[in-house]
Design a protein around this nucleic acid. Structure first.
Lengths: 140, 140
DNA sequence: ATCCTAGCTTAGACTATGTCTAAATCAAGA
DNA sequence: TCTTGATTTAGACATAGTCTAAGCTAGGAT
């Protein structure tokens, strides 16, 4: 049983076969998939699964705070099942590959009070960008 | 004459009336507009301006490094003419309002070598999220 | 065990955002 | 003025995501 399914059950969620397949697809990888990629992979296990269910389910899991929605390229959203551990992201500007990384300090402390413009700042995310090893080789 | 136009001229860019209007629209505000908002505002000064020209021009200015493309909500890209000053962004989770902010540390220095996964890390951006003063009032 | 019903799933239409194409237009040097 | 390549245009197309209305199902009630 997937750990994400356990967490979802706590929200009084009805655990349908569709939701289970989607949650397990999310958790089964350390890559952050787009909705279409999740649809494709989940459909290989449950061919009748619809696009709308995948989008609905992902949005609901985001609203419950159990997964994170990430947008790096403005094209499509990606979903990160690792919502309960503080981490940041490293994105390849060549191929879009993304990895989780852990920085050693909290960026909120780097924002002085007079730069907060009265906002109640709740969280901060760092996006590191560069070229992955493969794209460095391709560019050389 | 807009400073952005001056910078664009240095790239041997032909400064057409369309490009000038788009550049001045970008620079004339400290808000970061979407492409559609830029189109709407620029069209009020040059009604025959086409959507394709706005999108083409924005993409070219991004490629030249003279403006920044930002994606914080996964819906539409926003454009930031302030590409030549290091800064980060503060986004309201209520209304989407965005402001430029300046942090007191460089995030790249806080990413240990063994967290870089072989990437050539070129830049880092911090997105601070929270509620703006108006949205705090509305929630209270 | 079966029934009920709120909640879930579905296909496909629809919306929003952005890209591409081919033809017309323009700008600058010969 | 002519030529030529760059630029602009309208609108078709592509992609990502949302909505709708109808049917289905999980799980508590009986």
């Amino acid at each position: 049983m997937s750990d994400l399914v356990t967490r979802l059950r706590r929200h009084n969620w009805r655990i349908t076969p569709q939701r289970r397949v989607i949650a397990e697809t999310l958790e089964g990888s350390h890559v952050h998939f787009t909705a279409e990629e999740i649809l494709e992979r989940a459909c290989s296990r449950m061919p009748e699964l619809s696009r709308a269910t995948v989008y609905n389910t992902l949005n609901e899991m985001v609203a419950l705070g159990e997964i994170l929605e990430l947008t790096f390229d403005g094209r499509s959203k990606r979903y990160d099942p690792n919502a309960d551990h503080e981490h940041h992201h490293l994105v390849c500007e060549g191929c879009g590959l993304m990895k989780d990384v852990h920085a050693v300090a909290d960026p909120i402390e780097w924002l002085p009070g007079d730069e907060r413009h009265g906002f109640a700042v709740a969280r901060a995310a760092i996006t590191y960008r560069g070229l992955c090893p493969d794209c460095q080789d391709a560019a050389a």
